[in-house]
Write a protein that binds this DNA or RNA. Structure first.
Lengths: 144, 144
DNA sequence: CAACTTATCAACAATAATTGTTGATAGCAA
DNA sequence: TTGCTATCAACAATTATTGTTGATAAGTTG
Protein backbone atom coordinates (compact mmCIF):
# COMPACT_ATOMS: atom_id res chain seq x y z
CA UNK A 1 0.00 0.00 0.00
CA UNK A 2 0.98 3.62 -0.43
CA UNK A 3 2.44 5.68 2.41
CA UNK A 4 -0.15 7.33 4.64
CA UNK A 5 0.35 10.77 3.09
CA UNK A 6 -0.43 9.44 -0.37
CA UNK A 7 -3.46 7.58 0.87
CA UNK A 8 -4.63 10.75 2.57
CA UNK A 9 -4.38 12.61 -0.72
CA UNK A 10 -6.22 9.87 -2.54
CA UNK A 11 -8.98 9.90 0.08
CA UNK A 12 -9.38 13.67 -0.16
CA UNK A 13 -9.44 13.49 -3.94
CA UNK A 14 -12.54 11.33 -3.57
CA UNK A 15 -14.19 13.67 -1.11
CA UNK A 16 -13.40 11.29 1.74
CA UNK A 17 -11.83 12.27 5.05
CA UNK A 18 -8.94 11.10 7.15
CA UNK A 19 -10.17 10.47 10.66
CA UNK A 20 -8.18 9.30 13.69
CA UNK A 21 -9.83 5.89 13.29
CA UNK A 22 -8.71 5.54 9.68
CA UNK A 23 -5.28 6.83 10.52
CA UNK A 24 -4.80 4.13 13.13
CA UNK A 25 -6.02 1.29 10.91
CA UNK A 26 -3.86 2.47 8.03
CA UNK A 27 -0.92 2.74 10.39
CA UNK A 28 -1.43 -0.81 11.59
CA UNK A 29 -1.37 -2.04 8.02
CA UNK A 30 1.82 -0.28 6.92
CA UNK A 31 4.60 -2.84 6.51
CA UNK A 32 2.42 -5.50 8.06
CA UNK A 33 3.15 -8.95 6.67
CA UNK A 34 0.97 -10.86 9.16
CA UNK A 35 -2.19 -10.83 7.01
CA UNK A 36 -4.29 -9.70 9.97
CA UNK A 37 -7.99 -10.45 10.31
CA UNK A 38 -10.40 -7.58 10.84
CA UNK A 39 -10.80 -8.70 14.41
CA UNK A 40 -7.09 -8.59 15.06
CA UNK A 41 -6.89 -5.10 13.53
CA UNK A 42 -9.79 -4.10 15.73
CA UNK A 43 -8.12 -5.35 18.91
CA UNK A 44 -4.92 -3.51 18.07
CA UNK A 45 -6.70 -0.35 17.03
CA UNK A 46 -8.54 -0.21 20.36
CA UNK A 47 -5.22 0.28 22.09
CA UNK A 48 -4.90 3.64 20.39
CA UNK A 49 -8.55 4.59 19.93
CA UNK A 50 -10.51 2.69 22.58
CA UNK A 51 -13.86 3.83 21.26
CA UNK A 52 -13.35 2.47 17.76
CA UNK A 53 -15.96 0.00 16.59
CA UNK A 54 -15.51 -3.16 14.59
CA UNK A 55 -17.84 -1.70 11.99
CA UNK A 56 -15.43 1.14 11.36
CA UNK A 57 -12.54 -1.24 10.84
CA UNK A 58 -14.60 -3.22 8.33
CA UNK A 59 -15.57 0.00 6.60
CA UNK A 60 -12.02 1.29 6.43
CA UNK A 61 -10.66 -1.97 5.14
CA UNK A 62 -13.37 -2.17 2.49
CA UNK A 63 -12.62 1.39 1.41
CA UNK A 64 -8.93 0.62 1.14
CA UNK A 65 -9.73 -2.37 -1.00
CA UNK A 66 -11.89 -0.26 -3.32
CA UNK A 67 -8.95 2.09 -3.70
CA UNK A 68 -6.67 -0.82 -4.53
CA UNK A 69 -4.51 -0.09 -1.50
CA UNK A 70 -5.01 -3.55 0.01
CA UNK A 71 -6.27 -6.95 -1.00
CA UNK A 72 -8.86 -8.87 1.01
CA UNK A 73 -8.03 -12.55 1.18
CA UNK A 74 -10.55 -15.28 1.82
CA UNK A 75 -8.36 -18.29 2.42
CA UNK A 76 -10.93 -20.48 4.08
CA UNK A 77 -9.74 -19.68 7.59
CA UNK A 78 -13.18 -18.44 8.63
CA UNK A 79 -12.66 -14.73 8.23
CA UNK A 80 -11.19 -12.30 5.76
CA UNK A 81 -7.53 -11.30 6.00
CA UNK A 82 -6.03 -8.01 4.90
CA UNK A 83 -2.96 -7.97 2.73
CA UNK A 84 -1.31 -4.55 2.29
CA UNK A 85 1.23 -5.90 -0.16
CA UNK A 86 -0.25 -5.03 -3.53
CA UNK A 87 3.08 -4.02 -5.05
CA UNK A 88 4.85 -7.35 -5.30
CA UNK A 89 3.04 -10.33 -6.82
CA UNK A 90 3.08 -13.19 -4.35
CA UNK A 91 1.14 -16.16 -3.08
CA UNK A 92 0.43 -17.71 0.29
CA UNK A 93 1.29 -20.56 2.62
CA UNK A 94 -1.60 -21.26 5.00
CA UNK A 95 -1.31 -23.34 8.15
CA UNK A 96 -4.26 -25.73 8.30
CA UNK A 97 -4.00 -25.89 12.08
CA UNK A 98 -3.72 -22.30 13.28
CA UNK A 99 -4.58 -20.37 10.13
CA UNK A 100 -1.38 -18.32 10.06
CA UNK A 101 -0.53 -16.99 6.60
CA UNK A 102 2.91 -16.37 5.13
CA UNK A 103 3.96 -15.03 1.76
CA UNK A 104 5.51 -17.21 -0.90
CA UNK A 105 7.14 -15.77 -4.00
CA UNK A 106 6.95 -18.14 -6.92
CA UNK A 107 6.83 -17.91 -10.68
CA UNK A 108 3.38 -18.67 -12.04
CA UNK A 109 3.91 -17.46 -15.59
CA UNK A 110 3.70 -21.03 -16.87
CA UNK A 111 0.49 -21.70 -14.98
CA UNK A 112 -2.48 -21.59 -17.28
CA UNK A 113 -5.53 -23.73 -17.93
CA UNK A 114 -5.68 -25.71 -21.16
CA UNK A 115 -6.52 -23.82 -24.33
CA UNK A 116 -9.86 -25.60 -24.30
CA UNK A 117 -10.68 -24.43 -20.80
CA UNK A 118 -9.56 -20.88 -21.50
CA UNK A 119 -11.90 -20.68 -24.47
CA UNK A 120 -14.92 -20.35 -22.21
CA UNK A 121 -13.31 -18.54 -19.31
CA UNK A 122 -11.37 -15.29 -19.21
CA UNK A 123 -8.68 -15.76 -16.55
CA UNK A 124 -7.79 -12.50 -14.80
CA UNK A 125 -5.86 -13.84 -11.86
CA UNK A 126 -3.92 -16.90 -10.75
CA UNK A 127 -3.88 -17.69 -7.05
CA UNK A 128 -1.67 -20.36 -5.52
CA UNK A 129 -2.21 -21.53 -1.97
CA UNK A 130 0.23 -23.84 -0.24
CA UNK A 131 -1.61 -25.65 2.54
CA UNK A 132 0.34 -27.31 5.30
CA UNK A 133 1.55 -27.04 8.85
CA UNK A 134 3.69 -24.21 10.16
CA UNK A 135 6.77 -24.80 12.30
CA UNK A 136 4.95 -23.65 15.40
CA UNK A 137 2.14 -26.16 15.06
CA UNK A 138 4.61 -28.93 14.15
CA UNK A 139 6.44 -28.31 17.42
CA UNK A 140 3.23 -28.16 19.44
CA UNK A 141 2.16 -31.44 17.90
CA UNK A 142 5.37 -33.10 19.08
CA UNK A 143 4.87 -32.22 22.73
CA UNK A 144 1.13 -32.98 22.74
CA UNK B 1 -16.26 -40.60 -4.63
CA UNK B 2 -16.97 -44.31 -4.41
CA UNK B 3 -20.15 -45.85 -5.81
CA UNK B 4 -23.09 -45.81 -3.42
CA UNK B 5 -22.75 -49.51 -2.57
CA UNK B 6 -19.17 -49.03 -1.45
CA UNK B 7 -20.04 -45.96 0.58
CA UNK B 8 -22.85 -47.93 2.20
CA UNK B 9 -20.40 -50.62 3.25
CA UNK B 10 -17.98 -48.04 4.58
CA UNK B 11 -20.76 -46.38 6.58
CA UNK B 12 -21.85 -49.69 8.09
CA UNK B 13 -18.27 -50.56 8.96
CA UNK B 14 -18.26 -47.46 11.14
CA UNK B 15 -21.57 -48.30 12.78
CA UNK B 16 -23.32 -45.64 10.73
CA UNK B 17 -26.56 -46.12 8.82
CA UNK B 18 -27.76 -45.47 5.31
CA UNK B 19 -30.95 -43.47 5.48
CA UNK B 20 -33.14 -42.27 2.62
CA UNK B 21 -31.80 -38.76 3.27
CA UNK B 22 -28.20 -39.84 2.93
CA UNK B 23 -29.02 -41.94 -0.09
CA UNK B 24 -30.47 -38.94 -1.88
CA UNK B 25 -27.58 -36.61 -1.07
CA UNK B 26 -25.04 -39.22 -2.11
CA UNK B 27 -27.00 -39.80 -5.30
CA UNK B 28 -26.97 -36.09 -6.10
CA UNK B 29 -23.21 -36.02 -5.71
CA UNK B 30 -22.40 -39.00 -7.94
CA UNK B 31 -20.83 -37.78 -11.18
CA UNK B 32 -21.63 -34.21 -10.24
CA UNK B 33 -19.08 -31.75 -11.61
CA UNK B 34 -20.99 -28.61 -10.67
CA UNK B 35 -19.38 -28.15 -7.23
CA UNK B 36 -22.77 -27.60 -5.61
CA UNK B 37 -23.27 -25.59 -2.45
CA UNK B 38 -25.03 -27.19 0.50
CA UNK B 39 -28.02 -25.04 -0.25
CA UNK B 40 -28.22 -26.21 -3.82
CA UNK B 41 -27.96 -29.83 -2.66
CA UNK B 42 -30.70 -29.12 -0.16
CA UNK B 43 -33.03 -27.67 -2.77
CA UNK B 44 -32.51 -30.65 -5.05
CA UNK B 45 -32.83 -33.17 -2.25
CA UNK B 46 -36.20 -31.72 -1.25
CA UNK B 47 -37.60 -32.82 -4.59
CA UNK B 48 -37.10 -36.41 -3.54
CA UNK B 49 -37.43 -36.14 0.24
CA UNK B 50 -39.49 -33.01 0.92
CA UNK B 51 -39.06 -33.26 4.67
CA UNK B 52 -35.25 -33.22 4.59
CA UNK B 53 -33.63 -30.44 6.58
CA UNK B 54 -30.64 -28.31 5.69
CA UNK B 55 -28.98 -29.57 8.85
CA UNK B 56 -29.08 -33.13 7.56
CA UNK B 57 -27.45 -32.13 4.30
CA UNK B 58 -24.67 -30.36 6.21
CA UNK B 59 -24.26 -33.40 8.43
CA UNK B 60 -24.12 -35.83 5.52
CA UNK B 61 -21.65 -33.75 3.60
CA UNK B 62 -19.41 -33.40 6.65
CA UNK B 63 -19.54 -37.14 7.23
CA UNK B 64 -18.59 -37.79 3.63
CA UNK B 65 -15.65 -35.44 4.00
CA UNK B 66 -14.47 -37.24 7.13
CA UNK B 67 -14.57 -40.47 5.15
CA UNK B 68 -12.54 -38.87 2.38
CA UNK B 69 -15.35 -39.39 -0.10
CA UNK B 70 -15.65 -35.70 -0.98
CA UNK B 71 -13.71 -32.50 -0.55
CA UNK B 72 -15.23 -29.34 0.87
CA UNK B 73 -14.04 -26.27 -1.00
CA UNK B 74 -14.01 -22.79 0.43
CA UNK B 75 -13.28 -20.67 -2.61
CA UNK B 76 -14.39 -17.36 -1.21
CA UNK B 77 -17.79 -17.49 -2.87
CA UNK B 78 -19.58 -17.13 0.46
CA UNK B 79 -20.43 -20.75 1.13
CA UNK B 80 -18.78 -24.12 0.99
CA UNK B 81 -18.90 -26.20 -2.18
CA UNK B 82 -18.83 -29.96 -2.37
CA UNK B 83 -16.45 -31.68 -4.77
CA UNK B 84 -17.02 -35.42 -5.21
CA UNK B 85 -13.97 -35.78 -7.43
CA UNK B 86 -11.29 -36.98 -5.04
CA UNK B 87 -9.83 -39.46 -7.53
CA UNK B 88 -8.26 -37.15 -10.09
CA UNK B 89 -6.07 -34.28 -8.93
CA UNK B 90 -7.37 -31.06 -10.33
CA UNK B 91 -7.76 -27.37 -9.66
CA UNK B 92 -10.47 -24.79 -10.17
CA UNK B 93 -11.58 -21.87 -12.29
CA UNK B 94 -13.89 -19.57 -10.33
CA UNK B 95 -16.09 -16.91 -11.89
CA UNK B 96 -15.77 -13.72 -9.86
CA UNK B 97 -19.21 -12.60 -10.97
CA UNK B 98 -21.53 -15.56 -10.48
CA UNK B 99 -19.34 -17.90 -8.44
CA UNK B 100 -19.60 -20.83 -10.82
CA UNK B 101 -16.72 -23.31 -10.49
CA UNK B 102 -15.15 -25.45 -13.18
CA UNK B 103 -12.34 -27.97 -13.03
CA UNK B 104 -8.92 -27.29 -14.52
CA UNK B 105 -6.35 -30.01 -14.94
CA UNK B 106 -2.83 -28.66 -14.79
CA UNK B 107 0.59 -29.88 -13.78
CA UNK B 108 1.71 -28.43 -10.48
CA UNK B 109 4.66 -30.73 -9.85
CA UNK B 110 7.05 -27.82 -10.37
CA UNK B 111 5.16 -25.58 -8.00
CA UNK B 112 6.89 -25.31 -4.68
CA UNK B 113 7.89 -22.53 -2.31
CA UNK B 114 11.55 -21.63 -2.04
CA UNK B 115 13.78 -23.93 0.00
CA UNK B 116 13.99 -21.19 2.59
CA UNK B 117 10.21 -20.96 2.92
CA UNK B 118 9.78 -24.72 3.04
CA UNK B 119 12.21 -24.95 5.92
CA UNK B 120 9.65 -23.59 8.35
CA UNK B 121 6.53 -24.93 6.73
CA UNK B 122 5.52 -28.47 5.82
CA UNK B 123 3.52 -28.20 2.59
CA UNK B 124 0.89 -30.92 2.30
CA UNK B 125 -1.19 -29.57 -0.53
CA UNK B 126 -0.95 -27.17 -3.45
CA UNK B 127 -4.12 -25.43 -4.52
CA UNK B 128 -4.39 -23.34 -7.67
CA UNK B 129 -7.39 -21.11 -8.30
CA UNK B 130 -7.90 -19.35 -11.62
CA UNK B 131 -10.11 -16.34 -11.03
CA UNK B 132 -11.88 -14.72 -13.93
CA UNK B 133 -15.16 -14.37 -15.76
CA UNK B 134 -17.09 -17.26 -17.25
CA UNK B 135 -18.52 -17.16 -20.76
CA UNK B 136 -22.03 -16.72 -19.43
CA UNK B 137 -21.18 -13.59 -17.45
CA UNK B 138 -19.10 -12.21 -20.32
CA UNK B 139 -22.14 -12.45 -22.59
CA UNK B 140 -24.46 -10.93 -20.01
CA UNK B 141 -22.04 -8.06 -19.61
CA UNK B 142 -22.18 -7.34 -23.34
CA UNK B 143 -25.94 -6.91 -23.45
CA UNK B 144 -26.18 -5.00 -20.18
C1' DC C 1 -39.62 -61.89 11.98
C1' DA C 2 -39.89 -59.52 16.31
C1' DA C 3 -37.32 -56.92 19.62
C1' DC C 4 -33.86 -53.83 20.89
C1' DT C 5 -30.15 -50.62 20.59
C1' DT C 6 -28.84 -46.26 19.20
C1' DA C 7 -27.68 -43.49 14.94
C1' DT C 8 -30.33 -40.17 12.74
C1' DC C 9 -33.78 -37.00 11.77
C1' DA C 10 -36.37 -32.42 11.83
C1' DA C 11 -37.11 -28.60 14.50
C1' DC C 12 -35.29 -25.13 16.98
C1' DA C 13 -31.73 -22.35 19.07
C1' DA C 14 -27.14 -20.47 18.96
C1' DT C 15 -22.68 -18.65 16.87
C1' DA C 16 -19.77 -16.05 14.10
C1' DA C 17 -18.59 -13.02 10.37
C1' DT C 18 -20.22 -9.38 8.07
C1' DT C 19 -23.33 -5.74 6.45
C1' DG C 20 -27.40 -2.35 6.97
C1' DT C 21 -29.25 1.78 9.42
C1' DT C 22 -29.29 6.06 12.02
C1' DG C 23 -28.73 10.29 14.53
C1' DA C 24 -25.00 12.84 16.44
C1' DT C 25 -20.30 14.43 15.63
C1' DA C 26 -16.38 16.19 13.53
C1' DG C 27 -13.27 16.80 8.91
C1' DC C 28 -12.19 20.07 5.87
C1' DA C 29 -13.08 23.42 2.22
C1' DA C 30 -14.41 28.16 1.73
C1' DT D 1 -15.36 30.59 11.72
C1' DT D 2 -19.03 28.49 9.23
C1' DG D 3 -21.43 25.03 6.80
C1' DC D 4 -21.81 20.89 4.40
C1' DT D 5 -21.75 16.12 4.83
C1' DA D 6 -18.62 12.04 5.49
C1' DT D 7 -18.02 9.36 9.38
C1' DC D 8 -18.59 7.43 13.69
C1' DA D 9 -20.54 4.23 17.40
C1' DA D 10 -24.41 1.83 18.57
C1' DC D 11 -27.68 -1.28 17.34
C1' DA D 12 -30.19 -4.36 14.36
C1' DA D 13 -30.22 -7.61 10.61
C1' DT D 14 -28.39 -11.23 7.53
C1' DT D 15 -26.15 -15.38 6.11
C1' DA D 16 -23.65 -19.63 6.61
C1' DT D 17 -23.00 -22.96 9.75
C1' DT D 18 -23.08 -25.67 14.04
C1' DG D 19 -25.21 -27.16 18.71
C1' DT D 20 -29.13 -29.54 21.05
C1' DT D 21 -33.02 -32.61 21.72
C1' DG D 22 -36.75 -35.88 21.86
C1' DA D 23 -38.99 -38.89 18.68
C1' DT D 24 -38.18 -42.21 14.96
C1' DA D 25 -36.41 -45.74 12.29
C1' DA D 26 -31.97 -48.63 10.61
C1' DG D 27 -30.07 -52.70 11.07
C1' DT D 28 -28.36 -56.23 14.04
C1' DT D 29 -29.51 -60.09 16.96
C1' DG D 30 -32.03 -63.51 19.13
Amino acid sequence: MNPTEVITQRLRAQGLRLTPQKRVVIGLLQNNATHPTVDSLYENARQEVPSISRRTVYQTVNDLESMGEVTLLDLGTGSVRVDPNVEHPHHHMICSECGVVRDAVIDVSALTPSARDRRDFDVTDVEVNFRGVCRNCQDNGKTA
